[in-house]
Each structure stands twice: as C-alpha cells, then as structure tokens.
Nucleic acid binder design. Structure first.
Length: 480
RNA sequence: GCCGACGUAGCUCAGUUGGUUAGAGCACCAGAUUGUGGAUCUGGGGGUCGCAGGUUCGAAUCCCGCCGUCGGUACCA
C-alpha cells in the first residue's frame, strides 16, 4: 500500500474509545447500577437509536441544534435520540397494554451535538430509571433513594443528592412579582449561583455583566425590589431537610401558590425519613433549577463532592406532561438518569477505577511448543472448571517474555510447565499479583514485617501434581 | 456561537534576538540474564516541527489563512 492511501486513524470530536482496561471498569459500573435498579424491581427496556425527528422535537427550537439529525435512504427526517426519556414517553403512548405503573430501566448511548467538555461527550451512555403512571410522590422518594443507593453501590462515599421542586421556583416568581414569561431566564441565572456567586447572579438579573474573557452577558432588567426578593430566597440557610422546609414555609407564607410546593416537599422529606436516608447524602436544596422544559414537580440532581467541576452526574425529576404529546392525555411520570460516561470520567479523575485490561485470571505459558496439545488440554480443563484462562498465543519463546506479557495484562496467575514439570508430571503455579506486591515491599520490610515477607514469598510459586492443578488454582484465586 | 491561549517523538515538554545534521525525560525495542514479570545498566528505533502559502541567502522560530486542542463564556430536554 502506498503512503498516500493510509488513512489517518483519529476520533471525531466528542467521541471516545474505551480500551479494555477502561471498558472493564465501565462494564462493572453498569452491572453495579443495574443490580441496584433491579433490586428496586425496575424492568428492562430498549428502544432504537434512531427516532423520527418529530418524535424528539418540541421542547423549544433552540434545542434542535443539539440533535444529530439527517435523512434515511427513504428520505425521511430522522435523528439520533438525545435522551431516553422521550423514547420512553413514546413507548408508553404506543403500547396501551403496558401495565401501569410502568417502572423501567434502560441503559443505552445517546447523542448530543454539544461542544465537548471534561465529562461531556457527543456520544455517551445514560442509565435511566423511571416510573410512569403514578402521581404518588412515594415514587419520587423511591427514585431519590435509588440514586443514593446507586452511588453507594459504585463505591462512592463523598456525594450529594440534592432535590427541590419546580413549583418552588414558580412560587418564587410570584413572591418576587416577576412575570412567568421570564421563568426560563430567571431559573437559568439562578442555576449559576454556585458558579458565579450572588453578585454575579444579581448583575445578570439586572444590567448584565462582563465575564472574565471580556464577553458581554446581557442582563434581564429586573428592578431592585424583585432582586431583593430573590436574594431573600437565596439566603434561606442550608441545613437539615426539615429546617430548610420550615424556612421556606415562613418565607412564602403570603404566597398562595407556594402551598402545594411546600406540601410536596414535606411529603418527600417524610418519605426520606421513613426510608432512613441520611441528611449527609440527600439534601433539600432550593437553589437547584434544572429540567427547565418538562419538569413539573420534584427535581433531583447528584454531584460528587470531590469533582464538582463535572457538575451533575445523575439527575431527574417529575414530568407529568411528557406523555401527553404522544397520547393527548396526561400520564404522570418521574425518573432520573445517570450519566455513565460523565460519572466514569469523574471517577477516573479521582482514581476510583480498578483498571486491568484482561478478563483472564490465569495464563498458561507455553515453554515447549512441541507439546502444545498438553497446554491446550490443561487450558480446556481450567475453562471447563469455570476459570477465565488464556493460553499464551504470542511469538515469544522465553518464559520471561511470556510473564512480562501476563504482567502487562495484569493476569494474576501463571501456569508454568517446562521439561522438569513434564518429567515429573507436575505443574508450577506462580502468583504474579502477590509477587508484584512483595517486590514493592521488599525494600521497606524490616523485623517482623521482614519475617512475614519471607513467609509470603515462599507462597508466590508452588509446584503440584498435574492432577491437582485446578484445585490449587481455585485455592490460590480465593486469596486474590 | 463568542473571547483568549496553544499546536515540536506514542506521552510530557525544551529549543536562546531567524543560522548547519531539532533535543530531554517517560514509554517502546534489544542486550547484560539461552526456565521466571515490575528494579538497574548499556545500546537502539522513532519527527513532512498541525496543514497550506508568504517574507528571507536561510523559518520550529516572523506574517496571513485554514484545521485542531485547551481554557473562559453562552447553550444544555
């Protein structure tokens, strides 16, 4: 092939490869999440990557530019799904036989034509859980509870699930005397509170500001009185769920529309108490806005304490109006979506992943190629015993090279059979993982530790009769 | 989309006011060690200096355009 024909191997912006070490970690994440969702009795669903474009549209024109849209060979307008919630609404409307409440989970890639950021990709996996067909806020509490359990199950300790209610923000507009037409803009600015602070919010609500890069950000033109009211709202102190709730209640005593919001939040708080969900991990936080277009009640959002720059890794809320688009009548629903790849990236930054490329626990090295069938037979035996086993298939003839290969693949055990072992009908089993760990400690070990080290190093490699290979390997794997 | 910075080996970067054959560390490969991985030592391979033009006797270095990356901002069902 001439040089001009070589195609440069490269990725599209916003897309990424998952090489084996990362893919193993991602698969473990997905399995752990699924495990939690099924413990709550949610049912699996899958839908196609492509939908009719019109199915996905209708939540504001400005969003359409985020959708990957094109024409299929029949020249129909189609698009890649950008979330799993809209397809769910379509399914619920399309299959009237589905038993309600329909509680489903779905794990699948979605696509958005956003500008990529850390933890933000153009193709990413979402893992959703939703309950459709129930207006009971017990469902909302259950979703919050599942969010909490999921993050725990992923081995994350320092996280916050925060919740509020869309109706609180609507009441805030009444409280501050702001037209509901401006709702979208006001909420968007409030959502930036953590990022730009109270002064930044204040500026954007009034005359605008100029950001660090010299960009002009237009203001909303609210008057001082309105901004003061919003500041009062923002000033509601953070604390225990019930404390925040009573502060809110007293602030909004004269706002008629707030009664429903307060009652909803009280219900959710009561449920969380009944479920013994800790105040440390699940908090009532009035400042979260999210889900501006279709959320109608409680909203949820989770972030990692040690990776705040990744923002929301798990979010959702109640959306009672979404199915109506496809059915003509309302079906209440609530759910949440975990951004698997964003969370993966955050955990990667925090070093929370166990990264090993291989799925093999054992490598059978090949020292005497002329007796290949003996190695094949043993490999087969180990596999039939349920042990993930790889036989060395590379070109290297020396044992050292083969062990180096195993080490790089992070395969913990090696089986060695050379002329000595063949002669005696034995096999040597080497614990590469333990050997590596001991090597690291070799320099520092002293006194009693040194004795322990010597004792352990005698167990790194054992030789047993061929017939006991499987038994010995199982025994050793239990210690790993 | 807008503002700014930056593109030199697989990775992280150095490269003096433009001056011969563009460097380092890590990684990789080989040997020391023909049946024992991660350590050490020695040697080695690898670069159209993002792409295309211009200025110049001479460009990685200066100028223009394009592409890409990063940061900020906007947007985010």
């Amino acid at each position: 092939m001439s040089e001009q024909q070589i195609v440069e191997p490269r990725l599209l912006r916003g897309f990424r490869d998952y090489l084996p070490a990362q893919m193993n970690a991602r698969l473990r994440m997905i399995a752990a999440i699924r495990n939690v969702y099924e413990r709550y009795g949610f049912q699996p669903l899958d839908t196609p990557a492509q939908e009719y474009r019109v199915t996905l549209m209708g939540y504001g024109e400005e969003n359409t530019k985020q959708i990957f849209a094109f024409q299929n060979p029949e020249e129909e307008d189609v698009a890649l799904r950008f979330d799993l919630t809209v397809p769910l609404a379509r399914v619920v409307a399309q299959y009237p036989d589905l038993v309600l409440p329909f509680r489903r989970y779905q794990v699948a890639p979605v696509w958005r034509a956003d500008k990529p950021d850390p933890g933000r990709f153009r193709e990413f996996i979402q893992f959703d859980l939703d309950a459709v067909g129930t207006s009971s806020l017990a469902a909302d509490a259950e979703i919050l509870c599942a969010m909490h359990d999921t993050l725990k199950a992923l081995g994350i300790e320092r996280f916050k699930v925060r919740f509020s209610d869309r109706k609180v923000l609507n009441s805030l507009l009444d409280f501050a005397g702001i037209s509901h037409d401006s709702a979208h803009s006001v909420f968007r600015i409030l959502d930036k509170l953590e990022k730009i602070g109270i002064d930044g919010v204040s500026a954007e609500l009034t005359e605008g500001r100029i950001d660090a890069s010299g960009d002009k950000i237009p203001g909303l033109g609210l008057n001082n009185n309105q901004v003061e009211r919003i500041k009062e709202f923002i000033a509601v102190p953070k604390g225990k769920r019930r404390e925040v709730l009573s502060s809110l209640e007293s602030l909004f005593t004269k706002v008629e529309s707030a009664k429903e919001a307060v009652e909803e939040l009280r219900f959710v708080c009561n449920s969380l108490d009944a479920l013994s969900i800790s105040e440390d991990h699940v908090q009532l936080d009035l400042s979260i806005a999210r889900g501006l277009d279709y959320y109608t009640g409680p909203v949820f959002e989770a972030s990692l304490d040690d990776a705040p720059e990744f923002g929301s890794v798990f979010g959702g809320g109640r959306y009672d109006g979404l199915v109506e688009r496809f059915l003509g009548r309302k079906i209440p629903a609530v759910g949440a979506s975990i951004g698997v790849d964003r969370l993966f990236a955050a955990m990667e930054m925090l070093g929370l992943h166990r990264l090993a490329p291989s799925t093999a626990k054992v490598i059978v090295t090949v020292m005497e190629p002329s007796r290949l069938s003996a190695y094949q037979k043993l490999t087969r035996e180990l596999r039939e015993a349920g042990i993930n086993t790889e036989m060395y298939l590379g070109e290297e003839k020396t044992l050292g090279k083969q062990l180096q290969y195993a080490n790089r693949q992070q395969i913990p055990l090696a089986v060695i059979i050379g002329s000595d072992e063949f002669a005696k009908g034995e096999v040597t089993i080497k614990n590469l993982k333990l050997g590596g760990e001991l090597q690291d400690k070799k320099k520092t070990a002293q006194g009693k530790e040194r004795e322990e080290w010597l004792k352990l190093s005698r167990t790194v490699q054992v030789t047993v009769p061929l017939a006991e290979t499987t038994h010995q390997i199982k025994k050793t794997l239990e210690t790993i």
